[in-house]
Design a protein around this nucleic acid. Structure first.
Lengths: 229, 229
DNA sequence: TAAAATACTTGATACAGATCAAGTGTTTTT
DNA sequence: AAAAACACTTGATCTGTATCAAGTATTTTA
């Protein structure tokens, strides 16, 4: 393929994607790239709501693509979280850092997941969190103004986010109850059972932090479990 | 007043409120009671979205009023949570019970708050939670079919619940981080600072459970804090 | 208003998981 | 390819919170 080895990062520097759509019949490499990108997000959205071609075209105009290299920040503590992002590829994490400098993982997001500091994004207040890339990532970003406009102009997206947030509440509640009621070992085995890909993909020290454990404790738990098996 | 001392509980036994509205110009005691009930819920909804008179009238038809005496169950573990409820008056709690018989508080809801097992309500699967009244309560209940129909017929309510769920995510995330990153004492002082009414209104053993502590530990923390002050 | 049940307190002890420390193994950087 | 940085493991010890136990205070029930 002619494009192989080509550094595509320049393709993601446009502030908006809409001009690409205006290219109309011109099926060039740039457009193909963009079409491919939105296929992931639309397939996820359309698991929950129906979208017309017109709505899809409109939705695209609100998003900006962005690439993030491993360890690169999307958001740093003290800044306002200006974007809600959809992960097309790669892996992001959000975390906060306590007075002792210890990181506490809040979330992970890979292909098909959204990432943001919901509070900072919606309130435009400074964030207490950091977001960065655990693996090189390709993102679709929407700002608050775009988000609000999109929800008003496309009622199906209002519905989509209501459903998305509903599911988020359910999973957060489970994590919270697990964190309050279970032992370290139970928390780990439950996470491993419910979300095996997370264990495979995310470094162990981050899993430990996500569960509210020290890396040493998780290491010992894993040793004990593998000995028992 | 002629009605004082009158047991009004019979007023709440109608399965739906709509026939009352159909009474039209007949301003009777029942209708006044119902109008009063919905004032609380509408004032809360209209803090977030605008509703026309017609929309309000339609919304009312989806809700059933219900009274609950202290200690009475709204939901028991193993049953499907058939209703999303709005608390007009009183105090509800949701909790689960572990293998050892220990209760773990998940939520509290008083005037102006919603209560449900979101997962069970939406999926119609058996609930792992219990919901009961900590104080005598007056509720407005909506079932899943009504909820879905209401959101489709009144887009403002779709929007309202998206915003409600958004805020819920933010507060759950905070509680989760607090539970993972802070000591017992920090958790308590933060809750007391953020939500003083909760400390005043809810029994101490339930607050302890809500924070993932034993009643003994919370008692000792409070003693220590009052000594320091 | 007495009795029973429940909520809260205080003390002694136990233990899960944290911390501190020092190692090995594995990436990343140069 | 060497060096540095980072991730993981293992051991020894410490500590915050749970547990067990027995009391007092308060609320509920009869």
């Amino acid at each position: 393929m002619a494009g192989s080895g080509f550094n595509t990062s320049i393709l993601f520097k446009y502030p908006h994607g809409n001009h690409v759509l205006q290219a109309g019949a011109c099926i060039c490499f740039i457009q193909l790239t963009f079409v491919w990108m939105f296929e992931v997000i639309f397939s996820h959205i359309q698991e929950k709501v129906q979208l017309t071609k017109e709505e899809q075209a409109l939705i695209k105009t609100f998003f900006t693509p962005k690439k993030l290299r491993k360890k690169q920040y999307l958001l740093q503590e003290g800044d306002v979280c200006r974007y809600l992002v959809f992960v097309e590829k790669g892996l992001l994490r959000s975390y906060n850092v306590d007075e002792k400098g210890v990181e506490h993982m809040i979330h992970f997001a890979w292909e098909g997941w959204w990432m943001s500091d919901t509070y900072s994004f919606l309130s435009a207040e400074a964030s207490a969190y950091n977001i960065d890339a655990v693996e090189d990532a390709e993102l679709l970003m929407i700002n608050l103004q775009g988000f609000e406009e999109m929800l008003l102009k496309v009622p199906a997206m209002e519905r989509y986010f209501r459903i998305l947030f509903q599911n988020n509440i359910i999973s957060k509640e489970r994590r919270l109850i697990s964190s309050i009621t279970h032992s370290a070992e139970e928390k780990y085995t439950q996470l491993a059972a419910a979300n095996p890909q997370m264990i495979q993909r995310i470094p162990q020290n981050m899993i430990a932090s996500y569960l509210g454990l020290t890396p040493e404790t998780l290491s010992r738990i894993r040793k004990k479990l593998s000995a028992g098996a």
